[in-house]
Amino acid sequence: MHCGDTIERNMRWVVWALMPALIASFFVFGVGALIVTATSVLSCLFFEWFITRFILKRPSTLGDLSATITGILLAFNLPSNIPLFMIVVGALVAIGIGKMAFGGLGNNPFNPALVGRVFLLISFPAKMTSWPVPAGIAASYIDAETGATPLNLIGQIAGGNTAAADQLPSLANLFIGNTGGCIGEVSALVLLIGLVVLLCAKVITWHIPVSILSTVAVLTGLMWLINPVLYVNPLYHLCSGGLMLGAIFMATDYVTSPMTPKGMVWYGIGIGFLTVIIRYFGSYPEGMSFAILIMNAVVPLINNWCKPKRFGEAAK
């Protein structure tokens, strides 16, 4: 007898959980957010269909919604004013190289959306790191005004430019999402709503998000305690950049995360640690995507090392 769970059900819940963030970004960045997301989803779906139909000659896997999610997540990691062709290139890399090259859903070692995102980040660094400032629902897609994001500022402060601290938005604004950044990562609040949805629907467990967020909080907190002038309050780190999006939606991707609770915690700690290192000491202001991809590579090892607690093991 089966409990009735399907891949589709899990994926559908992820899509629902992502919806609040999409709506929020529409209110922050205007129609650009919708255009980018739609393009990304459509091109991901197209490439998935094309590759299964003509290259692999297998039955279509569009129905499992995994390409839809890859599309949404890819878009959420892009600025809302990015040229459309770049999105299409990113989608091709995400689906073609990130997923299908390894044999489709279930076999990919790296999160496809992040593969696409990092490819774009390295190929088009200028476009990928100039984020539009929040201009509300009326913001135009074509000539959005760009500005520094909180993470840029945090990096500048740590680099010695303590004057940048004045430009930091208030924590409340950061939490609600009234700041610059990628489409999906602006509002910590709506992403947390998504987390609650995923947990309630039993799509994911708490281990990965909680361990990532607490690792980041502890590390940045320590640095803040050591030197509050150079290093900002840990709450700024938690609410800014792709940390929430990554911890809740990207790192928890089934295929590329560890299988055991213990492994998930170690994986989360690793991501949190690498994120902080890259944010403070790397040349990129944002470290989440790289941290997740690096930890993705370690997952097989984690699976080998972290075995579940066997029944009767202690008694042996």
Partner: peptide
């Protein structure tokens, strides 16, 4: 279908 490594069996 393919195992999607969701860890529900674990």
């Amino acid at each position: 279908r393919n195992c999607i490594r969701c860890a529900k069996c674990v």
